[in-house]
Simulated scan of single mutants.
Amino acid sequence: MQTQEKEAGLCFPHLQNSSCRRSGRPPAESMLMYITLSSMSVLTVALNLLVIISISHFKRLQTPTNLLLLSLAVSDFFVGLLVVFQILLIDGCWFLGDVMCVGYYIVDYVITSASVETVVLISVDCYVAICEPLQYFMKVTKRRVCISVSGCWIFSFLCVFIVMKDNLRQPGRHNSCYGECVVVFDQFSGLVDILFFFIGPVSVVVVLYVRVFVVAVSQARAMRSHPLSVHGSARVTLKKSDLKSAAGTLGVVVFVFILCLFPSYSASLTGQETLIDAVSAAFMFFLAFFNSCLNPIIYAFFYPWFRKSIKLIMTLGVLKADSRDANLM
């Protein structure tokens, strides 16, 4: 009887002492985690798919700023799909082999890194829109945005081979037992990850948004003092609502992004990741994942065009021949 109970607690009972043990969570707790993660995965995939369809289908929505949001939505969409693999790990067992384990972490690293770089581009876009409005349409073009976004994804893809080089040479080398899925970064890889995908991007974002805030406040004061002047010859009208939409919405996206990813990166930065208990680790994962679900909700709250596009998509209005030319702005 004891032997059967022992084998039931193993990921691979036939391997006995070589197999990892299951987490041993109560059935009710495991079921709650299954339902929560599954629901959030479906919601994240569905909401970001709406963003992808909206910007990809409607020509009027394919502005430089929205192309950046499209890149972020693509990464968030894949985050929602990757949660399926986390659901498989609820019981503490990985059944897909060492190669798939490394492949999972590679995809996760690429999309997370690309998200961070895209957030930096969003900050730059907001900075130019607020601080250099007369030159915005000359500096920020669709072509430049597409090149920048492609560069972010390519850079993330190249960096993953630097960071994961040891794990790629011998998948599963850091596993202590069968059924475990672990990758380990060496000191150099960890330094590259922290510098290029946390310290560097966060520093750039903070500096840009401090500048944006200062300029936005000064412009708002100028418009209150001289409501009919300022840039009239260039046919540029900067309203308070425009400033709020540009700086406010993108600012919320960037702030929420940093807030959700800060705990996990700060643990790595301080070298405390090995001291984190299971509850804290689960919370940090949930927070990082929840960000991908929050972004489309932020768009729906702040952007009228997104709400209009959702209505057209849900009512199958996108199937009409002239729907691509609909004006949703």
Rank of each mutant, 00 (worst) to 15 (best):
A278T: 08
K308T: 07
A281Y: 10
V207M: 02
V202I: 05
S229R: 03
V202P: 00
A246E: 02
L316Q: 08
D322G: 11
V256H: 05
L228E: 06
F255W: 07
S229D: 08
T249V: 12
C293A: 09
A247T: 02
L259C: 13
I298F: 08
P296V: 13
G317P: 06
S292G: 15
L312G: 02
T270V: 14
V318C: 12
Y209P: 00
F196M: 14
F302W: 13
S266H: 12
V206G: 01
L238R: 05
S233P: 01
S309F: 05
I276E: 04
V254E: 01
F197A: 11
Y299R: 02
G271V: 13
F196D: 02
L316M: 12
G271Y: 11
L319R: 12
R307C: 09
L195G: 04
V217N: 03
A278S: 11
H231D: 05
Y265N: 11
A222G: 01
K244A: 14
H231E: 03
V279K: 09
Y299V: 08
L238C: 08
A222C: 03
S203D: 01
V279S: 09
C260H: 02
G317M: 13
I258Q: 06
S203I: 08
S309Y: 03
A278M: 08
V279M: 11
F257D: 00
I194Y: 00
A234F: 01
I298V: 14
R221M: 06
H226F: 15
E273Q: 14
M314C: 14
V205R: 11
F283V: 14
G232T: 07
W305V: 06
W305N: 06
F306E: 00
F198M: 12
A278F: 10
A281H: 06
F286T: 09
Y265Q: 12
V256Y: 08
I310F: 02
I297Y: 03
V206Q: 00
G251W: 01
V252Q: 05
V204F: 03
A281W: 09
G251L: 10
F197E: 03
L250Q: 06
V202H: 01
Y265R: 15
A247I: 06
L316G: 04
A321K: 14
N295K: 13
S241C: 07
K240A: 11
S218Q: 09
C260W: 00
V252C: 14
L238D: 02
R235F: 09
S241F: 03
T274K: 12
A321L: 14
V202L: 05
L275F: 12
A281F: 13
H231T: 05
T315I: 11
L316T: 08
V256R: 04
